[in-house]
Computed example of a mutant assay.
Amino acid sequence: MGSGDMEGGDMGMSAARLTEITYYPVKGCAGTSLTEATLTSTGLPHDRAYAIADEKGELRWQWGDPRMALISPESSDGEVTLRAPGRDPVRADSPNVHAWLTEFLGVPSTLVPSPAGNAHRLHVVSRASLDALNRRLAARGAAPLPMNRFRPNLVVDGWDDPHTEDRAARLAVAGTELAFTEDTIRCAITMVDQRTGRRAGPEPLRTLGDYRRADAGGIAFGAYFQVRRPGRIAVGDEVAVRSGPAVGP
């Protein structure tokens, strides 16, 4: 698996479109959908800007604290507000935010600046990849899974072949250009139902393990890209697969 740097220009395939743009203001919590966004050299603004830490300063994650999926942060004019079922909203800069998180999650929790964010990357998953997985799930009698199990930043629809995202050297979206960095290695978070905030395994890892074992170890689904040429993107933009060296820094 990994980037397939083909000779020539575009890969021969049908036109694809950007169908979802999502950023995650708090690492491990619900995402916020956008219809358009400005990509910078560090990715989507405010993506994984914050994280939730325990009493030892270690970051909480959804498999250990699945109710994190029910926290819906929103960013407006640089101000992040947290919302959750049965709770009044709270701003990230409020002195009450730590108590709010502790009460909702049921364990001591603090909101902290994310130490790594998403490493200045965009997580890309194609609809073709999810459709291929869901066909395999159906064949073993399991229910299909929604895209939010994989928490992508960008979703692409229209590619004929599943997993085109991890064979593309570069992607051009409107006036921007993205360069492949590595496959996305999946963890137990994919077994958390993002709608209910409950663990729901063993899928998708059981089925992905049948056919998506990465050469370097782990189970791969989706791919990470760096922004090499910033610019404005919008849902509906054409996504073109390029080969050859990337532009930009």
Score class of each variant (00 low, 15 high):
218 G>S: 04
105 L>M: 04
241 V>S: 03
31 G>S: 00
114 S>I: 12
207 T>C: 04
30 A>F: 09
184 T>D: 08
130 L>E: 05
226 Q>M: 09
120 H>Q: 15
101 L>W: 10
24 Y>V: 01
102 T>S: 15
20 E>C: 04
2 G>H: 09
185 I>Y: 04
108 P>D: 12
118 N>E: 15
120 H>I: 00
135 R>Y: 00
166 D>I: 05
55 E>S: 13
131 D>A: 15
158 G>W: 12
37 A>Y: 01
232 R>I: 01
163 H>A: 14
79 E>Q: 11
95 P>T: 14
133 L>F: 05
93 D>L: 03
217 G>W: 11
12 G>Q: 13
225 F>V: 02
80 V>P: 02
206 R>S: 11
91 R>L: 11
28 G>D: 12
62 Q>D: 07
180 F>W: 13
136 R>Y: 06
56 K>E: 13
232 R>W: 02
136 R>P: 10
81 T>I: 10
102 T>A: 10
164 T>A: 13
49 A>V: 04
189 I>P: 00
236 G>V: 05
92 A>D: 09
164 T>M: 14
198 R>G: 02
107 V>S: 12
126 S>T: 15
112 V>F: 09
106 G>C: 11
181 T>D: 15
185 I>M: 03
110 T>Y: 07
129 S>V: 05
30 A>I: 10
35 T>N: 10
163 H>I: 02
30 A>W: 10
183 D>H: 11
225 F>L: 00
93 D>M: 01
103 E>M: 06
7 E>V: 15
74 E>A: 14
87 R>H: 11
233 I>L: 10
100 W>F: 09
149 R>F: 08
14 S>C: 03
226 Q>R: 15
127 R>G: 10
209 G>T: 02
60 R>T: 00
46 H>F: 14
129 S>N: 07
237 D>M: 06
39 L>P: 08
9 G>L: 11
150 F>R: 09
126 S>A: 15
244 G>Y: 12
241 V>R: 04
217 G>Y: 08
246 A>L: 06
210 D>Y: 09
37 A>E: 03
38 T>Y: 03
187 C>G: 06
22 T>W: 04
120 H>T: 13
167 R>L: 13
195 R>L: 06
211 Y>W: 15
225 F>P: 03
150 F>G: 06
244 G>E: 08
199 R>I: 07
39 L>R: 07
59 L>P: 02
159 W>A: 01
37 A>C: 04
164 T>Y: 08
6 M>C: 09
126 S>G: 15
234 A>R: 15
184 T>R: 06
243 S>V: 01
54 D>P: 03
209 G>C: 07
95 P>V: 14
50 Y>F: 15
216 A>Y: 02
145 L>K: 04
226 Q>C: 08
167 R>M: 14
97 V>L: 00
177 E>D: 03
209 G>E: 05
51 A>N: 00
37 A>G: 03
234 A>F: 08
207 T>V: 08
16 A>M: 12
116 A>E: 14
4 G>C: 10
220 A>R: 12
10 D>Q: 11
140 R>E: 14
177 E>M: 07
90 V>C: 08
175 G>R: 14
198 R>S: 05
112 V>A: 10
27 K>N: 01
31 G>A: 01
178 L>H: 03
3 S>I: 08
40 T>H: 09
247 V>Y: 00
55 E>W: 06
